[in-house]
Design a protein around this nucleic acid. Sequence first.
DNA 1: AGGGTGACCCGCT
DNA 2: CAGCGGGCCACCC
Length: 94
Amino acid sequence: MNYTQRVHRLCKKIPKGKVSTYGRLAKKLNSGPRAVGQALNKNTDPQVPCHRVVMSDGSIGGFNSGVKNKITKLSAEGILVVDGRVPPSVITEV
DNA sequence: AGGGTGACCCGCT
DNA sequence: CAGCGGGCCACCC
């Protein structure tokens, strides 16, 4: 299995209503945070909720055809987004 | 095969 | 406390 697929699988592991951070996943994957971003960047699979992945600060980041779109998705998932960021309560260690 | 990029993180100044 | 630089890993050209 490619590294990218492994990242995708981890994203799917993220429980609904919760989010994870690039650094967290990177540590789980024993890799660098940038690698996670690359994998998700190339990933356009609807079954991979890359929007559930945020920065260590809870910031959404800036991708996916617009941050607003990502925030909308997160809100649809039941994740509270405040000022483009999510509270640490929704950040899970997966 | 080599260089550059990307949705980052940690440390120092 | 805020700003800057370096390091991390994988993928594309």
